[in-house]
Computed example of a mutant assay.
Amino acid sequence: MRDRHAPVFLARFCGNCDCGCPELYVDPSADADRRVVITDDFGQRVEMSLDQFRDLVEMAKSGTLDDLLDRRVTRA
């Protein structure tokens, strides 16, 4: 039986290996402002609210993040 207090796995962002790719979880037992968890392959994690995650997803869908990255990368 799954621990109902454990974060629930939603997605892996690489999927081509088993080397600790970034992963997305939702932690139903966490405070509302820390419910969405993104981990990386270095053991770090980012915690955010569902609203913050939705904003991030919307920026990715609309191309805003691409535009920001393109501007930063071309300046470097």
Rank of each mutant, 00 (worst) to 15 (best):
E58T: 11
R71A: 06
C21K: 01
Y25V: 01
V73P: 00
R45Q: 15
D70H: 05
Q44L: 13
A60P: 03
L69H: 05
D66R: 13
N16M: 02
L65C: 02
G20K: 11
G63V: 06
S62Y: 02
V37R: 10
A11Y: 11
R4I: 12
K61H: 03
C19A: 13
D3S: 14
A11K: 14
A30G: 00
V36H: 08
L24E: 00
F9R: 08
C14F: 04
C14L: 10
D55G: 14
R4V: 11
A30V: 08
A11E: 06
T39A: 01
S49W: 02
L68G: 04
R54Q: 14
K61L: 09
R45F: 13
N16Q: 09
A11R: 14
V8S: 07
F53G: 03
A30W: 07
P7I: 02
A6M: 06
D51I: 07
P22G: 01
I38A: 11
Q44F: 05
S29V: 09
R12G: 11
Q52L: 12
R54D: 15
D31W: 11
L56Q: 09
A11M: 10
D67F: 08
E23Q: 15
R75W: 06
K61N: 07
A6D: 12
S49L: 01
R54L: 14
R75S: 14
D27C: 11
F13E: 05
V73C: 03
G15D: 12
R4G: 01
V26S: 01
E47T: 15
A30E: 04
R75C: 05
F9C: 09
F53T: 02
Y25W: 15
D41L: 00
R34S: 10
M59R: 15
V73Y: 04
L50Q: 14
P7L: 04
C17H: 13
R35E: 13
L50I: 15
D3A: 12
F9Y: 11
V8M: 09
A11C: 07
D40T: 15
R54F: 10
T74L: 09
M48T: 04
P28V: 00
Y25C: 06
C21G: 08
